[in-house]
């Protein structure tokens, strides 16, 4: 299986305060799945990733998809099939945007 990395041309930053807030909202049972926790800037455009996207993004340091899902399974309390599907959808989406490098 091929390892995946973030495209190094993309500048990004974790929004720590926003992430803490999302985690607190989730602990209360509120839906904060749309709130951004990672900001990234690509070709002069700014984007934000939600908690799942942000956690995936941070792990893309040359990791294969299976190990990625294993690591995320320790953070997110969802069944493995759903998680694998969500991860796959996210990776396909950002790959189309040119945000990934495959090794």
């Amino acid at each position: 299986m091929r390892n995946i990395r973030r495209n190094p041309d993309i500048i990004w930053r974790e929004e720590e305060e926003a992430r803490d807030e999302v985690l607190r909202a989730m602990a209360r049972g509120d839906d904060a799945s749309g709130d951004g926790t990672v900001l990234l800037v690509e070709s002069g455009m700014m984007h934000q990733l939600n908690l799942l996207g942000g956690e995936i993004w941070k792990l893309l340091d040359g990791i294969d998809e299976e190990r990625l899902v294993d690591t995320l399974a320790m953070i997110f309390d969802v069944d493995r099939d759903t998680l694998s599907r969500d991860v796959r959808d996210f990776l396909v989406d950002i790959d189309k945007r040119g945000w990934l490098v495959h090794e």
Binding site: R13, E15, E16, A18, E21, L39, V41, Q48
Partner: peptide, 10 residues
């Protein structure tokens, strides 16, 4: 809009 970033971007 979401929140203001925790510090400036630029």
């Amino acid at each position: 809009m979401s929140r203001i970033p925790f510090s400036p971007i630029t």
